[in-house]
């Protein structure tokens, strides 16, 4: 039996030695953040759940070949990010049952009512804002603010320079803040909604992340 206080590296070693309990502990320790990464990258709850399941299975199946060059968490969150991107792409390939354009939104009684929101927007609003965010900005922001990667880890994962990482995180956060009407109204990087076909398109050389 593996003691509960073991760190990730010890649990990985034990799991690689065939210890199922160590693996269970390892997965439980990181489950919430894996799920959070999937939730923020994939968007909808169902897609996030599917991505999370996929990620866990891939983690388990790849664990024997995990070489410890990065931390287990970094490695696992990369896999979760990739699984979420796969899920996103599957969703994009699925035919939409219906599309409701912005023109169909009901008019608000007070047109200025939503300019300044006192309370935090709910999850659906945040999901919507994330979906409107270009994919490369969303990945950078989620990896930083949800997976807690440092700049170097993001640069390595996305294979982009550190300066680009900083820029993407900054632009992504600012765009979200503007979209969510947080603070003073301004719009440095917000782009008009390009429509469902153009959403989630990377603004640069986005590609799946190497999780090795």
């Amino acid at each position: 039996m593996v003691p509960r206080h073991l760190d990730d590296a010890a649990l990985v070693t034990a799991a690689q030695g065939g210890d199922r309990f160590a693996l269970d502990q390892l997965l439980r320790r990181h489950y919430d953040r894996i799920h959070a990464v999937c939730r923020r990258v994939a968007g909808s709850t169902k897609d996030a759940d599917d991505a999370c399941q996929e990620a866990l299975i891939k983690i388990v199946r790849s664990l024997p070949r995990f070489d410890g060059r990065s931390s287990f968490g970094t490695w696992a969150y990369r896999i979760a990010t990739n699984a979420s991107l796969d899920e996103l792409r599957k969703r994009q390939r699925r035919p939409a049952l219906h599309v409701i354009g912005d023109d169909n939104r009901p008019e608000t009684v007070d047109p200025t009512a939503d300019l300044y929101t006192e309370s935090f927007p709910d999850q659906l609003v945040l999901d919507d804002a994330l979906e409107r965010l270009p994919e490369d900005l969303r990945l950078a922001v989620v990896m930083r603010d949800v997976a807690d990667f440092d700049y170097a880890e993001i640069a390595d994962a996305l294979d982009i320079p550190l300066g680009t990482v900083k820029s993407r995180i900054s632009r992504g956060r600012a765009a979200l803040a503007s979209d969510l009407r947080l603070g003073p109204a301004r719009d440095p990087v917000h782009r008009p909604d390009p429509g469902p076909d153009q959403r989630n398109q990377p603004t640069s050389d986005e590609r799946p992340i190497d999780s090795t």
Binding site: D32, A36, R39, R40, V141, V142, D145, V146, A177, L182
Partner: peptide
């Protein structure tokens, strides 16, 4: 303002 975004994102 950016801190608020980070808090929101982390609040899953």
């Amino acid at each position: 303002r950016l801190r608020s975004v980070r808090a929101l994102l982390g609040d899953v």
